[in-house]
Simulated assay, not measured.
Amino acid sequence: MTIAFFDFDGTITDTDTLWQIIRFQKGNGAMYRGVLQLLPGLLQLKLKLIPAQQMKEKVLRHFFAGMKESDFQAGCNAFCEEALPKMIRPQALKAIREHQQAGHEVVVVTASAYNWVAPWCQRLNIRCIGSLLEVTDEAITGKLQGINCNGEEKVNRIKQVYHLNDYTEIYAYGDSSGDKPMLALAGNKSSFRPFRN
């Protein structure tokens, strides 16, 4: 059996979808105002003074805290239908299709939230493993449920679902340092193939 793991943001897409889901659901004005308010934290993240999960939660809290989960998910579904297809790299989609045609299992493993990646994956009949958002009283809190699905956590999450010894060949695709532990699962390091349009 063969399995292929794909990072999402920057690998399958040509952009960071966190900011795109904010733009889609809240509008350009709200996004830019939020960026200005969050700028001190974003600079701290750039300088590696705060961890990525802390900053991601600041962003999610600012834009989505208190929003009904059902409304948020409806917006994510619409995003996957209307906006996300324009952000998909054709070469990445081609690689996914080639794996599927060869009978390989394909899995997207992403630090982005499951909510706005899974609907797209479901249309392609591929599994999605992503960061999970905390929900309390049917509302988004802005916190993550557990650990951000990045770096070593990508491997941890993969191993929770798959017995990798069952697979004779493993492919992995990613574009950043946060993908390196996942890429190391592949039998051939050359499986690191960033896609460019």
Rank of each mutant, 00 (worst) to 15 (best):
R23L: 08
Q73C: 15
R157M: 10
K143D: 11
E105K: 06
C80Q: 00
T2C: 08
K86S: 13
F63L: 08
R196N: 14
F79N: 09
K143W: 10
G178H: 04
Q53D: 04
E138F: 13
Y32F: 09
I22N: 01
M55I: 01
G66M: 05
A78W: 09
Y114K: 13
A111D: 02
G151S: 02
N115A: 14
N156H: 10
P85G: 08
T13D: 05
Q91N: 11
I170M: 09
G103E: 07
F8Y: 07
Q20P: 11
R61W: 13
R127Q: 15
P181K: 01
N115M: 15
L84D: 03
E153C: 10
D14V: 10
L45G: 04
M182E: 01
A186W: 07
F24S: 11
Q91W: 05
A78E: 12
I147H: 14
A83P: 12
R61G: 13
L18K: 05
N188A: 12
A118K: 10
T141N: 04
G10K: 07
Q44W: 11
L38C: 03
A102Y: 06
T13Y: 01
Q53S: 04
A118S: 12
Q100R: 03
C121M: 11
T17G: 04
F6M: 05
M67P: 09
